[in-house]
Design a protein around this nucleic acid. Structure first.
Length: 138
DNA sequence: ATTCTGACCTATC
DNA sequence: TGATAGGCCAGAA
């Protein structure tokens, strides 16, 4: 998968161009979302990562919000993605309601022996997985 | 066109 | 230290 130096800007430009050429295809953020999925798919069982870490590993430090947005599309897009392994900066299950109820997400994590610090907060110190450390750069 | 909101984060007070 | 303000970009109203 070819990932270039300035992924964010380039993604925007590329999406804008392709939208002009092919208005019906490929929503603007498709690339961004796709790359988010690629990373989420690599989160090991029993570990979690955060929106911010994913954004940073994509080269866009401020894109955390868009990561959340991308995951929101997952329900309709790629269903097999372990998106329950993505939590917010302090380990809270901020996306829990998108599973129907936070308990569903919690159950999935507990089933993988993810350590919890509180009912709806994982212990990041013990299970954080940093995408940047696992993804070798070209 | 404009405004508001959001599975967020960092910087600043 | 805890709180707020600002930034990000896509969609909905």
């Amino acid at each position: 998968m070819p990932i270039a130096a300035a992924p964010h800007r380039q993604g925007i430009a590329l999406a804008a161009a392709s939208r002009k050429d092919r208005p019906q295809q490929m929503p603007a953020s498709h690339h961004f979302a796709q790359r988010v999925y690629d990373i989420v798919a690599q989160i090991p069982r029993g570990r979690v990562t955060t929106y911010g870490h994913i954004a940073r590993s994509l080269g866009d430090v401020r894109g955390a919000r868009m990561v959340g947005w991308a995951l929101m599309q997952v329900d309709d897009d790629e269903r097999d993605l372990p998106c329950h392994r993505v939590v917010n900066r302090v380990g809270l299950l901020s996306g829990g309601w998108h599973f129907g109820h936070p308990d569903v997400m919690r159950g999935l994590l507990l089933a993988e022996n993810v350590p919890f610090r509180d009912d709806y907060q994982v212990d990041l110190d013990r299970c954080l997985w940093d995408p940047a450390s696992e993804e070798p750069e070209p």
